[in-house]
């Protein structure tokens, strides 16, 4: 975490500093006007840096102790494996969530300094909840990989692979589905493209994260209801947690 902290510092408050510049004009001529818009844009730093931190924190969460034999010592204690799993998820994710939340709060102060207005409390709370969720999701994916892998290299490769897939390759998946559906790719004014992209984003943790943040932005319509977003957020939390718990239950040290 110490190694990643400078990157997080650059990505989260750094982006908030940049996007809250009163004279900034984004490509396409857009200009962030509200504190929530700045938070939304600076969430890119969380998608790139925060999730990578979660992967780096969790990749040896199970495999290291399994390889060293310490896991067997822990599994021999009178504590249910479910409780041990929950403790592991909690401990690993909170180690990333706390510093990232502090940086988000610093971002809010930066926005106040640069724009002269505080983000609304509800916006900030939703932003922190969404950020916490995406960090938990990546922690869960990587812990599942760590529990499957006998050695840490495989767990690392799997965790980074998942991160790479949802962060960089998901646009390719969206494009392919759009192409197969006969929808013009990347047309911002095409409602069928926007609807398809919005629907497909529900199947990506990064997409759900941005959907949650977009619920606090005015004028964003991507054809997805709030309840669908929250259902998918719950699904992205519960399903990997269930998979990890099941995996830990059957794990032979």
């Amino acid at each position: 975490m110490l190694l990643m902290f400078p990157i997080l510092l650059l990505f989260i408050p750094g982006m908030a500093w940049g996007f809250s510049d009163p004279s900034i004009i984004l490509p396409g001529g857009h200009r962030p006007e509200t504190p929530m818009e700045v938070l939304f844009y600076s969430s890119l730093g969380i998608v790139f840096g925060g999730t990578m931190c979660a992967v780096l924190m969790a990749f040896d969460g199970v495999s290291k102790e399994r390889a060293s034999g310490v896991l067997e010592v822990k599994l021999a204690q009178p504590m249910s494996r479910l409780s041990q799993t929950l403790a592991l998820v909690h401990g690993t994710s909170i180690a990333v969530i706390i510093p990232v939340t502090i940086l988000v709060l610093i971002s809010a102060v930066i926005i106040r300094y640069r724009m002269g207005v505080w983000p609304e409390l509800i916006d900030l709370v939703i932003h922190i909840i969404a950020t916490g969720l995406i960090l938990i999701w990546y922690t869960l994916f990587t812990l599942i990989a760590s529990s499957k892998a006998r050695e840490q290299g495989t767990a690392m490769a799997f965790g980074v692979g998942i991160w790479f897939f949802f962060t960089f390759l998901w646009a390719l998946v969206t494009s392919m589905v759009a192409f197969a559906s006969g929808i013009a790719i990347g047309q911002d004014n095409d409602s069928s493209w926007i609807a398809l992209e919005g629907a497909l984003d529900l199947f990506s943790p990064n997409g759900v994260y941005h959907h949650i943040l977009e619920t606090r932005l005015s004028g964003v319509q991507r054809g997805v209801s709030d309840w669908q977003i929250w259902i998918m957020a719950i699904a992205w939390t519960v399903l990997p947690l269930w998979m990890l718990a099941k995996r830990m239950e059957d794990l032979v040290p």
């Binding site: 060293s68 067997e72 021999a76």
Partner: peptide, 14 residues
């Protein structure tokens, strides 16, 4: 597990 203490083989604490 409450009544048993288990010492596995060659635990590499690190």
């Amino acid at each position: 597990r409450k009544i048993i203490g288990h010492m596995p083989e060659q635990v590499r604490w690190q």
